[in-house]
Each structure stands twice: as C-alpha cells, then as structure tokens.
Amino acid sequence: MIRKTQWEPYLLLLPSLFYLLFFFGWPMIQAFSLALRGEDGGWTLAYVQRMINDTYFREALITTVALIVAILPIQFLVALAMALVVHARPKGAGLFLYFYAVPLAISDLAAGIVWFAIFTQRGYLNTILQAIGLIEKPIIFLNYQKPLWVIMAIVAAEVWRATAIIMVILVAGLQSIPNDYLEAAEIFGAGLFERITQIILPLLKPSLQVALILRTILAFQAFAVVVALAGQGATVLAKEAYKWYTDIRNPNVAAAYAGLIMVLSIATTIVYLRALRTPEEVTA
C-alpha cells in the first residue's frame, strides 16, 4: 500500500459511487414508491392488493419457491462432485474444468431453448427414449396440464446452466484448503467419505455459504428459462412482473412484484447469514 494523500482514493471511487447511486440506489427507492404510492402521491396498498389478488400470484410464488427447493440441493451435489473431480486432478483436469465452467457464460434464455430442444414433443429426449425402447410414441412433456413435467424440465435446464458458478466457487474454496489437512486425516485413518464429511465440507462452509446466497438470489429472478420452456404453462414472480409491465402496462403492480422479489432476496440472505454463521476459526 502506498501513500495517503487522502483525496486520491475518494476521487477514484467517486464515479462508481455516483453511478450506483443513480442506477441502483435511486431505482430501488423508486420501486417502492411506484408500488406503494397512488397517483395522488399518498401511500396506498392498492397495487400490492391487486398483485396478491391476481389469479397467477399464488402460482407464481409457489412455483418460484418450489423451483428453488428442487434445484438448489441437486445443484450443490453436482457442483460438489464436479469440484472434487477437478480437485482430484484427473488426466486433462484443465479440459474438464473448462467444460464444467462453460455454462457460466450461457444465458438463461439460451439454456431454456437448448432444453426446449430436448424436452419438446419432437425433441431429443423422446428420440432417445424411443431409440432404447422405453416408450412407443413421443410423450408431451411441456404441456400446461402436466406442471410436474414442466417443472422437471426447468429444473434440468437450471441445474445444467447454473451449477458452474457454484462449482467455480467450490474449486476456489478447495484450493485454499491445505493438502496437509487431508493427508493428516488420511494418516489417522480417514477414508474418502470421512475426509469429505469431516475435513472438506466444514472447511468449505464459507464458500458454500457464498454460493448458496448467490444462487438463491439469482433463482428468485428466474425468468427466461421459464418463458422458453413453459410458455404460458407455468409462471414465476419475475415473469409476472414482466407481464404486468409489458402486456398489462401497469408499472405499479410490476413494481410491487419487483419489491416483493427484493424483499424475499434480502430476507433470505439474512436468514442464510444467521443460520450459517461461520465460526471464527474457520475463516481465520
């Protein structure tokens, strides 16, 4: 670290600070103002009421939460498997890491379309199932009368796309665990399973926590995957917000949805931070 001519760092921070105030802080206030204030400028719960009473509200909320509950455990298991595999340095570890990480740069829309190609009636899943003789004629998976299939397709797409970020965080976490610990555990008789549960997982807790928060927040915003796979079949909170803004042209109710997503995100973050508080000795 150099020098403490005190104004220099502040000057360098100023542009970011202003930018975030204008395009982050202010819209945030604006969102609540849109959602909670009537045309006369007074406070009102009318828009929130309208959001809650809407036919699709319950479904959107339930689907959003259900997706999170279904997706996260699978994602963490797959990510942990990937991270452990990469960390065990198989032949061509760099190549594996690259391909496991590729979905990091794939958009949710592209992922949705990719899995649409698989799950659609004339798609690849039916082709494969029929080829190995499991079915006689194609199944219609993406049908709004079979929400369970639609949800499964979304889960598959999300696990495929968004596991990479968790994997990278976990690999970075694994790299920070000194090999000595694992070797010591091995000397004292710990097998692979014990090494994972007794040494690796506890030491990975900070990384897991960060990944969990990041993934949950992003899952609350799930949008394009749902549109691409479900069409009108299933809905989530972000999709409702989009619908209210573009189709119904009611920015106030759309803002109410935005506010709800924000509140849910912040609440979850706080719950996670409290529930998964990391003891000092682990972070040190």
Binding site: L17, Q30, A254, A255
Partner: peptide, 23 residues
Amino acid sequence: FRIAIVSTRAFPIVILSIPLAVS
C-alpha cells in the same frame, strides 16, 4: 465501500429495470 459493493451482488439488480423504465 468494499462490503457495500459485495452486498449489491446479493441483490436482484435486473428487477430494478422496472422503476428505471418509468424514469
């Protein structure tokens, strides 16, 4: 400042496009 920046990552930023659109 650092913590503030890190915590914005735990935030549904794209959702803010709705109030921004109005502005």
